[in-house]
Protein backbone atom coordinates (compact mmCIF):
# COMPACT_ATOMS: atom_id res chain seq x y z
CA UNK A 1 0.00 0.00 0.00
CA UNK A 2 2.94 2.33 0.61
CA UNK A 3 3.89 1.82 -3.02
CA UNK A 4 0.36 2.71 -4.07
CA UNK A 5 0.46 5.91 -2.07
CA UNK A 6 3.82 6.81 -3.63
CA UNK A 7 2.49 6.13 -7.09
CA UNK A 8 -0.46 8.38 -6.25
CA UNK A 9 1.99 11.16 -5.49
CA UNK A 10 3.71 11.08 -8.86
CA UNK A 11 0.58 10.90 -11.01
CA UNK A 12 -0.30 14.59 -10.83
CA UNK A 13 3.17 16.00 -11.63
CA UNK A 14 3.44 13.46 -14.45
CA UNK A 15 0.03 14.44 -15.75
CA UNK A 16 0.87 18.15 -15.70
CA UNK A 17 4.21 17.50 -17.41
CA UNK A 18 2.54 15.41 -20.10
CA UNK A 19 -0.19 17.93 -20.88
CA UNK A 20 1.97 21.04 -20.84
CA UNK A 21 4.77 19.26 -22.74
CA UNK A 22 2.34 18.01 -25.33
CA UNK A 23 0.76 21.43 -25.77
CA UNK A 24 4.17 23.08 -26.04
CA UNK A 25 5.37 20.67 -28.71
CA UNK A 26 2.10 21.05 -30.62
CA UNK A 27 2.73 24.83 -30.57
CA UNK A 28 -0.38 25.55 -28.54
CA UNK A 29 -0.31 28.90 -26.73
CA UNK A 30 -0.12 26.97 -23.48
CA UNK A 31 -0.22 29.81 -21.01
CA UNK A 32 -3.08 31.65 -22.70
CA UNK A 33 -5.05 28.41 -22.94
CA UNK A 34 -4.37 27.70 -19.30
CA UNK A 35 -5.71 31.12 -18.29
CA UNK A 36 -8.82 30.63 -20.37
CA UNK A 37 -9.55 27.25 -18.81
CA UNK A 38 -8.76 28.45 -15.30
CA UNK A 39 -11.21 31.33 -15.73
CA UNK A 40 -13.90 28.84 -16.69
CA UNK A 41 -13.00 26.74 -13.65
CA UNK A 42 -13.49 29.74 -11.39
CA UNK A 43 -16.91 30.34 -12.89
CA UNK A 44 -17.87 26.74 -12.14
CA UNK A 45 -16.87 27.13 -8.50
CA UNK A 46 -18.76 30.41 -8.16
CA UNK A 47 -21.83 28.63 -9.51
CA UNK A 48 -21.66 25.97 -6.80
CA UNK A 49 -21.09 28.35 -3.86
CA UNK A 50 -24.82 28.71 -3.06
CA UNK A 51 -25.30 24.92 -3.21
CA UNK A 52 -22.44 24.36 -0.82
CA UNK A 53 -23.72 26.96 1.62
CA UNK A 54 -27.18 25.40 1.62
CA UNK A 55 -25.88 21.89 2.14
CA UNK A 56 -23.17 22.59 4.69
CA UNK A 57 -25.71 24.52 6.75
CA UNK A 58 -28.22 21.65 6.60
CA UNK A 59 -25.67 18.95 7.42
CA UNK A 60 -24.11 21.06 10.17
CA UNK A 61 -27.51 21.58 11.78
CA UNK A 62 -28.28 17.87 11.57
CA UNK A 63 -24.98 17.00 13.22
CA UNK A 64 -25.43 19.61 15.97
CA UNK A 65 -28.95 18.39 16.75
CA UNK A 66 -27.49 15.00 17.68
CA UNK A 67 -29.46 13.24 14.97
CA UNK A 68 -26.41 11.66 13.31
CA UNK A 69 -25.17 10.28 16.63
CA UNK A 70 -28.57 8.73 17.31
CA UNK A 71 -28.69 7.23 13.80
CA UNK A 72 -25.11 6.00 14.11
CA UNK A 73 -25.76 4.25 17.42
CA UNK A 74 -28.87 2.68 15.99
CA UNK A 75 -27.08 1.30 12.93
CA UNK A 76 -23.72 0.47 14.50
CA UNK A 77 -24.32 -3.26 15.15
CA UNK A 78 -25.27 -3.87 11.52
CA UNK A 79 -22.69 -1.72 9.76
CA UNK A 80 -19.62 -2.45 11.83
CA UNK A 81 -20.01 -6.16 11.13
CA UNK A 82 -19.20 -5.46 7.45
CA UNK A 83 -16.44 -2.92 8.07
CA UNK A 84 -18.47 0.21 7.39
CA UNK A 85 -18.33 2.88 10.09
CA UNK A 86 -21.90 3.75 11.10
CA UNK A 87 -21.04 7.35 10.34
CA UNK A 88 -21.03 6.51 6.63
CA UNK A 89 -24.55 5.08 6.44
CA UNK A 90 -26.39 8.37 5.79
CA UNK A 91 -23.79 9.11 3.11
CA UNK A 92 -24.32 5.79 1.32
CA UNK A 93 -28.07 6.37 1.14
CA UNK A 94 -28.01 10.07 0.20
CA UNK A 95 -25.35 9.40 -2.45
CA UNK A 96 -27.85 7.34 -4.43
CA UNK A 97 -30.06 10.42 -4.83
CA UNK A 98 -27.88 13.49 -4.92
CA UNK A 99 -24.14 13.94 -5.20
CA UNK A 100 -24.16 17.50 -3.91
CA UNK A 101 -26.10 16.51 -0.79
CA UNK A 102 -23.61 13.65 -0.40
CA UNK A 103 -20.77 16.19 -0.60
CA UNK A 104 -22.14 17.88 2.50
CA UNK A 105 -21.98 14.56 4.36
CA UNK A 106 -18.49 13.80 3.02
CA UNK A 107 -17.21 17.07 4.43
CA UNK A 108 -18.87 16.22 7.73
CA UNK A 109 -16.91 12.94 7.86
CA UNK A 110 -13.68 14.84 7.05
CA UNK A 111 -14.38 17.40 9.75
CA UNK A 112 -15.28 14.96 12.51
CA UNK A 113 -13.05 11.93 11.74
CA UNK A 114 -10.32 13.54 9.61
CA UNK A 115 -9.57 12.86 5.93
CA UNK A 116 -6.75 10.42 6.80
CA UNK A 117 -8.77 8.26 9.23
CA UNK A 118 -10.26 4.96 8.08
CA UNK A 119 -13.69 6.59 7.66
CA UNK A 120 -12.09 9.51 5.81
CA UNK A 121 -10.12 7.34 3.40
CA UNK A 122 -13.08 5.06 2.80
CA UNK A 123 -15.26 8.09 2.04
CA UNK A 124 -12.67 9.54 -0.34
CA UNK A 125 -12.39 6.33 -2.36
CA UNK A 126 -16.11 5.63 -2.28
CA UNK A 127 -16.98 9.06 -3.66
CA UNK A 128 -14.42 8.64 -6.45
CA UNK A 129 -15.74 5.39 -7.86
CA UNK A 130 -19.47 5.74 -8.49
CA UNK A 131 -22.11 8.22 -9.65
CA UNK A 132 -25.47 9.22 -8.23
CA UNK A 133 -27.76 6.41 -9.37
CA UNK A 134 -31.28 7.85 -9.22
CA UNK A 135 -30.38 11.38 -10.22
CA UNK A 136 -28.42 10.30 -13.31
CA UNK A 137 -31.13 7.87 -14.35
CA UNK A 138 -33.94 10.38 -14.02
CA UNK A 139 -32.13 13.16 -15.89
CA UNK A 140 -30.82 10.96 -18.70
CA UNK A 141 -33.97 8.96 -19.28
CA UNK A 142 -35.99 12.15 -19.26
CA UNK A 143 -33.88 13.37 -22.18
CA UNK A 144 -34.95 10.31 -24.19
CA UNK A 145 -38.52 10.40 -22.77
CA UNK A 146 -38.12 6.83 -21.56
CA UNK A 147 -40.23 5.57 -18.65
CA UNK A 148 -39.47 1.85 -18.63
CA UNK A 149 -35.85 1.57 -17.62
CA UNK A 150 -35.54 -2.24 -17.74
CA UNK A 151 -32.33 -3.57 -16.17
CA UNK A 152 -30.57 -0.21 -15.77
CA UNK A 153 -31.29 0.13 -12.04
CA UNK A 154 -30.10 -3.41 -11.23
CA UNK A 155 -26.87 -2.87 -13.17
CA UNK A 156 -26.25 0.53 -11.64
CA UNK A 157 -26.82 -0.73 -8.10
CA UNK A 158 -24.61 -3.74 -8.77
CA UNK A 159 -21.77 -1.47 -9.97
CA UNK A 160 -22.27 0.75 -6.91
CA UNK A 161 -22.12 -2.27 -4.63
CA UNK A 162 -18.93 -3.47 -6.33
CA UNK A 163 -17.38 -0.02 -5.87
CA UNK A 164 -18.38 0.01 -2.20
CA UNK A 165 -16.87 -3.41 -1.54
CA UNK A 166 -13.65 -2.46 -3.34
CA UNK A 167 -13.46 0.79 -1.31
CA UNK A 168 -13.84 -1.06 2.00
CA UNK A 169 -11.09 -3.51 1.07
CA UNK A 170 -8.70 -0.82 -0.20
CA UNK A 171 -9.27 1.66 2.61
CA UNK A 172 -8.74 -1.14 5.13
CA UNK A 173 -5.25 -1.66 3.72
CA UNK A 174 -4.31 2.01 3.79
CA UNK A 175 -4.51 2.63 7.54
Amino acid sequence: MRALANLSNIIIPFFIFFIVGHGFVARVKVYESFLKGAKEGLKIVVDIVPTLIGLLVAVGMLRASGFFDMLGNLLAPVTEAVGLPAQLMPLLVVKLFSSSAATGLVLDVFRTAGPDSYAGLLTSILMSCTETVFYTMSVYFLAAKVTKTRYTLTGALLATLAGTVASVVLAGRMV
Binding site: L7, S8, I11, D116, L121, S128, M174
Partner: peptide, 8 residues
Protein backbone atom coordinates in the same frame (compact mmCIF):
# COMPACT_ATOMS: atom_id res chain seq x y z
CA UNK B 1 -1.43 13.46 1.90
CA UNK B 2 -4.47 14.57 -0.13
CA UNK B 3 -3.47 12.69 -3.28
CA UNK B 4 -2.83 9.35 -1.53
CA UNK B 5 -6.25 8.14 -2.64
CA UNK B 6 -5.64 8.44 -6.39
CA UNK B 7 -4.44 4.89 -7.06
CA UNK B 8 -6.85 3.15 -4.65
Amino acid sequence: DPTAIIVP
